[in-house]
């Protein structure tokens, strides 16, 4: 999800759409509007939204249809539903089918602001968590590869050391120097793999996937 992901407001009352857009734009959010569920879904197909605020009762496609589309196609998008006091049970149904929050009409704009901010915090947290998980995977893979490296390294280093023994009394100084360099280089690589293993084990034992993020 992009840092500046947008909010989509879907409501068949144009006045409602516009007021929410003005309110949220004023506090720094980027907002698109759609006047019904069908247009809302078209917008969702065209680009990614972090948050969708949708009315439940709309002609053509209602808020539940929008939520179904989001569930099936936009896993990272949160939904806040708006519904009238008269239909609290539909708000409950919306929450059951995955809405993040609901707002009852008529509402104070402060309520929308709070709900949007909470949703935004949740999105940010999920993004962080996802990043941490990926870093942990990278770290695990790096440790496995680091260990795997010791096998071919031991072959290269072992044969180089055998050559060193054979060249010892050959009187060929150039050959000896060349083989010595291979042995020394192998030792450096070994030091690196050892250091990396210690480092990774210290972190992994201490705890935290969070710490792995530092790697």
């Amino acid at each position: 999800m992009a840092e500046r992901s947008k909010i989509l407001v879907i409501d068949d009352e144009k006045r409602m759409c516009d007021s929410i857009k003005v309110l949220l734009s004023n506090i720094g959010y980027e907002v698109d509007t759609a006047e019904n569920g069908r247009i809302g879904i078209e917008r969702l197909k065209a680009q990614e939204y972090g948050l969708v605020i949708t009315d439940l009762m709309m002609p053509e496609l209602d808020g539940f249809a929008v939520m179904k589309h989001i569930r099936e196609n936009c896993q990272n998008t949160l939904v806040i539903v708006i519904t009238g006091y008269a239909s609290v049970e539909s708000a409950v149904r919306a929450i059951r089918s995955g809405a993040y929050d609901y707002i009852l009409k008529p509402f104070d704009f402060e309520i929308i602001k709070i709900s949007v901010e909470r949703a935004w915090d949740k999105l940010k947290l999920e993004k962080e968590l996802e990043k941490t998980r990926k870093l942990a995977q990278v770290a695990e893979r790096a440790l496995a590869m680091n260990n795997e490296l010791n096998n071919p390294l031991s072959v290269a280093s072992g044969f180089a050391q055998l050559l060193q023994i054979r060249a010892e009394n050959s009187g060929d100084e150039v050959l000896k120097r060349q083989i010595d360099s291979i042995v020394k280089a192998s030792e450096s690589i070994h030091q690196m793999t050892t250091q990396f293993r210690r480092f990774a084990h210290t972190l992994l034992n201490e705890n935290a996937e969070h710490d792995l993020g530092m790697m």
């Binding site: 390294l153 072992g158 050391q161 192998s186």
Partner: peptide, 8 residues
């Protein structure tokens, strides 16, 4: 013996 190892 931990690989890589000292041959001698």
């Amino acid at each position: 013996l931990e690989k890589p190892f000292n041959v001698a």
